[in-house]
Amino acid sequence: MRAIVGYVGDDDANASTFHTEGWLKTGDVCYFDSKGFLYVVDRLKELIKYKGYQVPPAELERLLYSLPGVADAAVVPSMKQEDVGQIPVAFVVEKPGSNLSQHQIMDYVAKQVAPYKKIRKVVFIDSIPKSASGKVIRRELANLALSNHPVSKL
């Protein structure tokens, strides 16, 4: 008996779910290294579109985690702006006793990324919203970013 792969009688669903070579379109951004290892680095639907460039939040979050004084962080897009699209907004939870400023964080990241990947706004919050499994609930942060949540300190 032959296994059927895909949606029976629904060519549109098959085209949006499966690559022409049979791969499942998961929405993950991946690459193979020179040794053939596969690395999953981000999700397509989470990419921030800034001036036609794609900015991966996970890359910016890794940099934020490396900054002394940052206990937790997440990056989401702000509301769309006519001339640039979306801008990366960082939500940062500081470690106790830390005294980071928005400018320190933006400068730290800017020195390590291409100009289009720079964080353009920092919001300090008490905690990053997460699901029971520990996954960041990005839609809650995106709603805060869209509501022009004020920056708590400069």
Rank of each mutant, 00 (worst) to 15 (best):
M1G: 15
M1R: 12
R2M: 08
V5L: 09
Y7S: 01
N14R: 11
A15L: 03
F18M: 01
T20Q: 02
W23H: 14
W23D: 05
W23C: 06
K25L: 11
V29K: 08
C30S: 00
F32C: 10
D33R: 12
Y39Q: 14
V40L: 10
D42G: 09
R43N: 07
R43E: 08
L44N: 01
E46S: 12
L47H: 07
L47C: 13
Y50E: 01
K51T: 11
K51A: 04
E61H: 12
R62Q: 07
Y65H: 14
S66D: 09
V70F: 02
A74Q: 06
A74E: 06
Q81G: 10
G85Q: 04
G85H: 07
V89N: 06
F91T: 12
F91A: 05
P96M: 08
G97C: 02
N99S: 13
N99R: 14
L100A: 02
Q102V: 09
I105P: 10
I105N: 10
Y108V: 06
Q112V: 15
V113N: 13
A114E: 13
Y116C: 08
F124C: 09
I125N: 03
S127A: 11
P129L: 06
S131H: 10
I137S: 08
I137L: 15
N143W: 12
A145G: 03
S147F: 01
N148E: 11
N148K: 15
V151W: 05
L154N: 00
